[in-house]
Design a protein around this nucleic acid. Structure first.
Lengths: 119, 119
DNA sequence: ATAAAGTATGAAGTATACTATATAGTTTAA
DNA sequence: TTAAACTATATAGTATACTTCATACTTTAT
């Protein structure tokens, strides 16, 4: 269990952003009931994993809302198996679409490069 | 050559957004000098191609600024071949990074699915 | 013991990317 | 010919995702 500063250093995500993600319901830390002099929040590996996932997903254009949909499936036990798998399968489709679009972009850029070289 | 309404219908991008992209320097229409009763702007296939490229690039998380960098190489003749190819090669690297991240996300989601199924 | 560094909270500010509104002129179809 | 539809311009407003600031308390290092 680590404090926000360590979590920030570990993931490369600024403290302010981590707090913003926590307020947005993407990650969750916990108070240690035995600590009574302060209200410092502690984060486990789960939070670190989620932050790393957020970084990846954001880099490929998913919104925080879309990311939350997946993350909620991650550890959520109250939703039916079927519903959980459905959400995840939808995301897999979206990911494949994005991969297709990236490949289409590559093709376009190759064409553009060829045009430039033949000038 | 088409007016903004037709361009919008062809690409699925709202007129307001097209105007915003033009103001941002991503696309460019032209006035017809022979038309003197109005100042309607006409767009060619180049603008339509660029808009389709913008759609793809945005879907995979590129910012308008990053997209503009590529688009400027597209038809720009004032920049040296070498500089143009350098920018495009950088984008190709970024695209490959994004594909890697998408594959990593797929792997994570598969693990998550397996966990759910084994509950 | 005290200054520096870390933590929590709330509120305001910023950047990006639109989206809507108001105004005014132009074109087109009934 | 006139009302509906289209176009241009400028300005303001909105949503998302942070980022900064102010305040106050706690911990840590010297």
């Amino acid at each position: 269990m680590k404090l926000i500063n360590q979590l920030s250093k570990e993931t490369g995500i600024p403290i302010g952003t981590i707090r913003f993600y926590e307020k947005s319901g993407l990650i969750k830390g916990e108070l240690k009931p035995e600590v009574k002099t302060n209200n410092y929040v502690y984060y486990g590996e789960e939070a670190a994993d989620k932050l790393r996932f957020i970084l990846m997903a954001k880099a490929v254009g998913f919104t925080l809302h879309e990311i939350k949909e997946v993350i909620d499936m991650w550890y959520e036990k109250t939703i039916s198996k079927k519903a959980q798998l459905k959400v995840l399968d939808q995301k897999l489709l979206q990911i494949d679409e994005k991969i297709s679009e990236l490949n289409a972009m590559k093709a376009q850029i190759f064409i553009c490069k060829t045009n430039i070289q033949n000038r």
